[in-house]
Simulated assay, not measured.
Amino acid sequence: MNILMFGRSGQVATEMIRRAPDGVSITALGRPNADLVDPRGCAKIVQETNADVIVNAAAYTAVDQAEKDKVLSNIINAQAPAAIANAAAIRGIPFIHISTDYVFDGSGTTPWKPDDRCAPLNAYGRTKRRGEEGILAAGGQWAILRTSWVFSAHGNNFVKTMLRLGSERDKLRIVADQTGGPTAAADIADTIYRMAMRMTTGPKVGGIFHFSGTPDVNWAQFAREIFMQAGLFTQVEDISTADYPTPAKRPHNSRLDCESLKKIFGVERPDWRISLRRVLDELGRLPSPAKGGSRAA
């Protein structure tokens, strides 16, 4: 199977390259080769490819900055995926696109199902939802994989930020009224490969699916687990979203119902705590047996 992927240096794209299964060839296109600010150029690449599957692992992900860069984020997150999806549909090539929990308003406490009403709270979420709508309108065979709270040993993410701050400070104030499922980029990559295999063999399948790690936690609980596993003694003080204002509003409830992904593709929700340990090991941040560690208060 040959995969053409938009994205090369992001968290998921990096893991896609590293974790390609035997028999799978992946061509990863970075910005110099395929810039999503040029939707027509991206569509032209799809028109000329001999790939079996197209994956879009690239996006404008600076959530707060998107409040100012509305035009740019819309081109990258909405117009480019729609153009790629249209080209893939014309060619009859399956298309897999990564989306986000931020398409929902975060109300309630019930996990969001793929067909629940979308009502994004911020510009980033709105552009990602427009991208989804463009893919739906394109037709063809496609799958949208919504995920949340992505972390890895690469790029910028919550785990790496907590490791840095936890090494510098004795106490941190962390938001505790936003709940979701932390998700390792490696687990997302493995899931995309499984989806790609299924979409290119047997009856056609597709649609919108959710994927996140388990158990669901808030950011403060996530931070405590990071510190415990890394052997850091940083204390965590729970605060509310109102105590930590940001340019972009964040959803309080990012829980995702992942049952349809399990039913169609056989993918179970992974325990993010196990995946976190692998990331910390890669970063060289696991304490030695002699050094030990303690769960942060």
Rank of each mutant, 00 (worst) to 15 (best):
F104Q: 02
F104E: 00
D105L: 10
D105T: 13
S107E: 14
G108H: 14
T109C: 12
T109R: 15
P114Q: 11
D115V: 11
D116M: 03
D116N: 04
R117T: 15
R117F: 15
C118T: 13
A119T: 04
A119C: 05
N122P: 08
N122R: 13
A123S: 15
A123T: 15
Y124H: 13
G125V: 08
G125H: 08
R126F: 02
R126E: 12
R126N: 03
T127G: 12
T127D: 14
T127F: 14
K128Y: 08
K128L: 05
K128R: 13
R129H: 12
R130F: 15
R130N: 15
R130V: 11
G131H: 03
G131L: 06
E132P: 01
E133Y: 09
E133T: 04
L136M: 09
L136F: 12
A138C: 10
G139M: 05
G140S: 06
G140R: 11
Q141L: 06
Q141N: 10
I144T: 05
I144S: 01
I144G: 00
L145S: 07
L145N: 06
T147M: 08
T147S: 11
T147V: 03
S148H: 07
W149C: 08
W149T: 09
V150H: 02
V150Q: 08
V150T: 09
F151L: 12
S152E: 01
S152V: 01
S152I: 03
A153P: 00
A153V: 02
H154R: 15
G155K: 13
N156L: 11
N156R: 11
N157G: 03
F158L: 13
F158A: 12
F158M: 11
F158S: 12
F158G: 00
V159F: 07
K160P: 05
K160F: 04
K160R: 15
T161S: 09
T161G: 01
T161Y: 02
M162I: 15
L163Q: 03
L163G: 03
R164D: 11
R164S: 12
R164A: 15
R164Q: 09
L165A: 08
L165S: 02
R169H: 02
R169G: 00
D170H: 03
D170G: 05
K171F: 02
R173Y: 06
R173D: 02
R173C: 01
I174R: 01
I174W: 01
A176H: 01
D177E: 10
D177N: 14
Q178Y: 04
T179F: 00
T179M: 10
T179H: 02
T179Q: 04
T179P: 05
G180E: 01
G180F: 00
G181K: 01
P182K: 04
P182G: 04
T183R: 03
A184G: 14
A184S: 13
A186F: 06
A186L: 08
D187C: 07
D187F: 06
A189F: 05
D190W: 10
T191F: 00
T191K: 06
T191H: 05
Y193E: 10
Y193G: 09
A196D: 08
A196V: 14
M197W: 11
M197E: 14
R198W: 04
R198H: 13
R198F: 07
M199L: 14
